[in-house]
Design a protein around this nucleic acid. Structure first.
Lengths: 253, 253
DNA sequence: AAGTGGTCTAGACCACCAT
DNA sequence: TGGTGGTCTAGACCACTTA
């Protein structure tokens, strides 16, 4: 029901029938009456909208629509903390997306053994691809999935299936019976080497965004490792940043 | 009380007395008994720990410690979605942090008028600074705060006070009576121009992480604009990425 | 089948903001 | 001072995992 309430609030915000001229939304008590649910359920829905940045809640004052966000609800994209397939990211944001699979193979884990929590000699399925936005190559991806996760009957065809699946998510869901629960990423700036420059059709030395990440299933088993390079001049990530919850004991300070 | 429960759980995880050998935490029902609070309160605490990535909850199975995170609880830092003063970021992560104020001034808003929601001719207080980690310059920051936010009695000394405060957060709290509620950031990769290269003691053309952001108070008033450049070879940001909440109505697809 | 987390309820009180 | 969001309670039922 919280989900239903959320959707109704969003569409009411979109068509302008929810918020007053100052952007204020009806109180939680009123909403719970209007939708015929408990106040707790309304709060659950509003909390999710708050995390997404669509509304801002002010203790004692009310809940307000965030005009910076409501401009394109339902198509929030390229937020760095959202784990979306980069292909969908491109598709949702602007142009046509295309993918070219550069290479698929089964190779030993080697340097990735640590982060994938397998032996260095264990085989991993590898896929290298190039993503295009409006025919321009903008992202180069190299992905690795431990072969031991692939359904036993499909192990022989793993490399080809990875290529056919096109994304980590789909490959893991279809052929490993796993979903990605979260991924831990690291973002940095690097310059294009000869190989990347050739693929991304940019100058050697051009600035690139590098996103390196490990995906985990809900049981905390690492399910993929990926290194992605983005044309620095064409791709940006957005992120809402907030004061963090203090996990440290304040007494300790 | 949720806060108290959270702290107790964290320290129990730290000293190893909370989780079993498989990392599982006692059930919510048991925790609520143990701490003498309702289950809802325990869930509130666990939810915060889940957002921070310290634990993972699995419907039907239990709640587990995330070993990737619990290694340094209480000092989680350099997470991109956490709005921390960059100086504290350096300090908390490794070395001694130092700051050199390069320039303070009051200038017209001009190009920043749009994102700060003031007139182009309105004055803004500007501060440019350089942050050092172990004597190496690693971050260049340029910040702007609308002068109209500064307490009237301090307007004349605004530029100097901004320099003395050293961070946006402190300046806004001390002299504008405002706290930053959230900030919207954009991260990209650029190459160092002559000016930045000189400040950051790197090659012209070296890859830099560029973080551009607008800070907002809880009433959604923009309170600062900042452009920050990070030495790409020395600074990385980490981020937990998760599947996003669908805000779009699924019927629409 | 037993145990877990996920959701919802109805009510209460508090902390905060505005007027 | 009245209305708002923030927190907590006690209980119920459901959905899911695991053995």
């Amino acid at each position: 029901m919280a989900r239903q309430v959320l959707l109704e609030i969003v569409s009411a915000i979109e068509n302008g029938s929810m918020a007053g001229s100052d952007g204020q939304i009806p109180s939680e008590a009123e909403l719970s009456q209007r939708f015929g649910v408990s106040r707790g359920t309304v709060r659950e829905a509003l909390s999710q909208l708050e995390v997404a940045g669509l509304v801002v809640r002010r203790h004692g004052a009310g809940t307000y629509v965030n005009p910076k966000m409501s401009s394109r609800p339902g198509s929030i994209h390229a937020w760095f903390d959202e784990a979306t397939a980069f292909m969908d990211m491109i598709r949702h944001s602007n142009h046509e997306a295309a993918v070219r699979i550069l290479r698929t193979a089964v190779v030993p884990a080697e340097d990735l053994a640590g982060c994938l929590e397998v032996e260095a000699s264990s085989p991993v399925v590898h896929m290298e691809k190039l993503l295009f936005s409006a025919s321009i190559p903008i992202i180069h991806c190299a992905n690795y999935v431990p072969l031991c996760l692939v359904e036993p009957s499909l192990v022989d065809r793993a490399a080809d299936l990875f290529g056919a699946a096109e994304t980590n998510y789909r490959f893991l869901e279809r052929h490993c019976n796993r979903t990605v629960h979260h991924q831990q990423s690291e973002i940095s700036a690097v310059e294009a080497d000869e190989v990347l420059a050739a693929f991304l059709e940019c100058r050697v030395g051009a600035p690139l965004l590098r996103v390196e990440e490990v995906g985990y299933a809900s049981d905390l088993v690492p399910v993929f490792y990926g290194v992605n390079h983005f044309r620095g001049d064409l791709v940006k990530f957005r992120q809402l940043r907030r004061p963090s919850i203090d996990i440290a004991d304040p007494k300790a300070e």
